[in-house]
């Protein structure tokens, strides 16, 4: 599903360049649930942003579902983002003047799904994350965990091939974090490929594979026994 080869990325800051990713290689098959770990500044977000086509790589190759992601114009990139990728951010990134359902329906709007169907599907995913009753509430009327569940529903609504989550539990307390992880595991159970950036050991062990980043290279890449989050909920 995802294949990266010799991936490099640096940031220019004035006269210095900061070499953040120094030649990464991995392959992720369909249906995997991968945790990307590493200390702060190790380049986890940078990697995820490149995989999510929010940022561009400098060197190497990236293939998503057999499609080489290279030199795409903004319109093409937007279409791929829309069709292939679902994003969950640490800070939720909900649109504050849209209610939960409208937020979830937004990717479908850009897929030109008719309004009625959009609302039906948005409601379906809200139900899945257990927030059907909150459909008409604005983000600022929701708790952090609820917001993140709305964000996950939104990421899932477009039925992407890959779900990318950058510290989805980073802003949440542990109970809420487990709820969110439970949800992510269930989505993964349905066969969705998911990548999660985290620096929490317990969260990482709720995934099936852990990729350890350090100073821009992969120092460890192992499959683990998945801990089910449902037991803590």
């Amino acid at each position: 599903m995802i294949e990266i080869k010799d991936l490099h990325k640096s940031y220019k800051m004035g006269t210095n360049t900061l070499h953040v990713l120094k030649g990464l290689n991995f392959t992720i098959a369909e249906g995997e649930l991968v945790a990307i770990m590493g200390s702060s500044g190790s380049g986890k977000s940078t990697l995820l942003n490149i995989l999510g086509m929010l940022d561009e790589l400098d060197e190497g190759s990236y293939t998503l579902d057999g499609v080489p992601i290279k030199n795409l114009n903004e319109t093409k990139a937007a279409n791929y983002r829309n069709k292939f990728l679902g994003f969950v951010f640490q800070s939720f990134n909900l649109i504050n003047y849209k209610n939960a359902m409208e937020n979830v329906a937004l990717p479908l709007y850009y897929q030109k799904v008719p309004r009625k169907e959009r609302e039906e599907r948005a409601l379906k995913y809200l139900t899945q994350v257990g927030l059907k009753e909150w459909a008409t509430h604005l983000p600022n009327e929701l708790s952090g965990g609820q917001k993140q569940r709305v964000a996950i529903a939104r990421a899932m609504a477009a039925e992407p091939k890959v779900l990318l989550a950058d510290e989805p539990t980073g802003a949440l307390d542990s109970t809420t974090s487990y709820e969110v992880m439970d949800l992510i595991q269930k989505i993964n159970d349905d066969g969705n490929t998911i990548l999660i950036v985290t620096h929490e050991e317990d969260i990482a062990h709720m995934c099936k594979r852990i990729v350890q980043l350090k100073d821009g290279i992969i120092v460890e890449d192992k499959f683990v026994e998945q801990v089910r989050a449902s037991q803590y909920v």
Binding site: T75, A78, N79, R81, N93, L106, Y110, R154, A158
Partner: peptide, 16 residues
């Protein structure tokens, strides 16, 4: 700007 970034992350084309 931020809102437009979110929209772009969700698949809004430049035209949109």
């Amino acid at each position: 700007t931020k809102e437009l970034g979110i929209r772009k992350a969700l698949g809004a084309t430049p035209k949109a």
